[in-house]
Design a protein around this nucleic acid. Sequence first.
DNA 1: CTCAAGGTACGGATTGTATCATACCTTCTG
DNA 2: CAGAAGGTATGATACAATCCGTACCTTGAG
Lengths: 105, 105
Amino acid sequence: MDHEGHPAEHEITLGAVLSALADPLRRRVVMELARAPIGTERTCASFGLPVSKATLTHHFRILRESGLIRQIDRGNSRAATLRRDDLDRRLPGLLDLVAAETPAP
Amino acid sequence: MDHEGHPAEHEITLGAVLSALADPLRRRVVMELARAPIGTERTCASFGLPVSKATLTHHFRILRESGLIRQIDRGNSRAATLRRDDLDRRLPGLLDLVAAETPAP
DNA sequence: CTCAAGGTACGGATTGTATCATACCTTCTG
DNA sequence: CAGAAGGTATGATACAATCCGTACCTTGAG
């Protein structure tokens, strides 16, 4: 883990990633990033999740510490990007499953 | 859902499967079944999980209701089998990830 | 400098999950 | 029939996860 809480590629574990993806809100974030063009950057708030700011921070921390996303300091805000390459090497096929999920009724 | 709590193939959802696999004990069960020969049948108790019988029933219920395993009534006991075909069609690649997981230190 | 925007940290309420002990049911075996 | 083996149901407990409000920090814009 670097000082900002990002695990290195070899530190990404299936357990942590599955736990992170078990939550529907977090899965939705990953789904949107996985469907977006490679390298897409989004702010936490841009996803329009129906929770408070504090809860948002909580969810993005779990996504970051599991290795699913990278959060880059942009001064004013923090840009979230999907760790596509790392994940495709470490857990191939997983992002495709999340990206292909059909939204709940 | 049939009367024994098995979802049909089209009722298997990514969310339920990921939640089931988020637990290390349940993931271990799926891992052992995924590594075993196709069609392998195991009883709940045969996995040697370090929990009580009641907890065992709880975990196998979640595995069954998520669609990961099928439990067949064998009179004396219930045989658990992996729903390999259904899962490979519905969530291709997922079982491979679980089967390939390297055990925790 | 001041302020709004984007995030984080903290404390607390609520809910969910994992766990167990106990009691009970069913089926095979002797 | 009696017992053992494999599971299930129920109720209780302990822990973890989710969520919020509030307070606070940092940065960029005016």
